[in-house]
Write a protein that binds this DNA or RNA. Sequence first.
DNA 1: GCTGACAAGATTGTCAACAATCCCCGTGGT
DNA 2: ACCACGGGGATTGTTGACAATCTTGTCAGC
Lengths: 221, 221
Amino acid sequence: MQPEKHRGTAAAQARDGLREAILRGEYLPGERLVEAQLIERFAASRFNVRAALQDLAGEGLVQMERNRGAHVRKVSIDEAVEITEVRMVVEGLIAARAAERVTDDQAGELDEIGRLMRAAVAEGEYRAYSDLNQRLHALVRAIAGHGTADRIVETLRGQLVRHQFMLSLLPGRPQTSLPQHERVIAAIRDRDAKAAENAMREHIASVIEALRSIDYLGGPA
Amino acid sequence: MQPEKHRGTAAAQARDGLREAILRGEYLPGERLVEAQLIERFAASRFNVRAALQDLAGEGLVQMERNRGAHVRKVSIDEAVEITEVRMVVEGLIAARAAERVTDDQAGELDEIGRLMRAAVAEGEYRAYSDLNQRLHALVRAIAGHGTADRIVETLRGQLVRHQFMLSLLPGRPQTSLPQHERVIAAIRDRDAKAAENAMREHIASVIEALRSIDYLGGPA
DNA sequence: GCTGACAAGATTGTCAACAATCCCCGTGGT
DNA sequence: ACCACGGGGATTGTTGACAATCTTGTCAGC
């Protein structure tokens, strides 16, 4: 969505550091982000800290209220579903385009990830499977080379890290998503754009179902 | 994408004023935005001007380079195509959801817009038709009530105002797009989500074709 | 006439101090 | 016990000045 920022500058370091910290879960949703604390933690001036907060507010990671400071933004389940719906269609576009542009080498990489995924699920290594999941989506995006769609998906993904964490705890998820991933890989490898889009959308649609099921579990708690 | 900002504050006024000015075309793509000039024009402090520039950079309307100031971002035809591709799938999602949620009253409004559109095209009132076009898309979005998709479409639209202006000059556009609009309206009225999504995507796909044709016209000039 | 270095001006980057605001908590009254 | 009412401390909002950097114009040397 936004053009790339400068790297290495103090302002950029503060921004990236704070984003990483939020994404790691070091600051919980709703938690207050006090400027003075951030100044100490990131060894940045107040000027740069404020610029960082404003940037992350633009990315939807933090929420700023006048005279009341900045908080880590809370994303409700309903919002998470909305965000994932948008992700579904945009990643569908990305998958379709990847199918049109994939090279033989890249197709080989995709198959390799597929093999590793099957192995990880077979051996119950869910952490490895989760990493492979991210690698797969990242590779598809790289193949598609769609800068605009890329930025949007990245921004949306950032807003849901907390929920994605909960998702990975759902029992039976890998068994559901593995065949979906395989269909995505196969469609891109076969350069079938329409099938790739459908496969990716089905995959993310099932993520939405899972999100809704969390709602039932965690809602009345 | 980002949470709503405060209205009425000096910072918000500077931001909204500058955005309006850029969208109106008062500042041309590539034009430099000198802080001192903006301070005068919007009667804001430098602090607020910089905050506004940073916000608009987040929206992709301006580009900031270290020590070289802020410029109105130039969007190439290739980028415009990418942006419109994303818009295509997201507006498709919106149309599908609108079909699921539309009330009888809203269906009537849609039909009314359709009637006005046919009349405008028949009488060659292209300016009125263009306004109705925006009204239609806005109404569909309102019916869908999808905040996340809404924000993204709005942001993307902002980045293309200049190109959309050129589009409206293309001869024969209304004759092409009118039946597409009618199909969108009919599908939503009939509460057929899949058809609504397809109709909206076809419509915007033809916008992409038109954008590419501008490329041929304006490219080697 | 052209190239390069250098200086002057313009513009942006950064900071530290000051002002405004809010939130918490104790006080007094009922 | 409960509520209204201010302090007082903490936190953010804003300003103006100063430093760093880039851009432009000029001039000497070839």
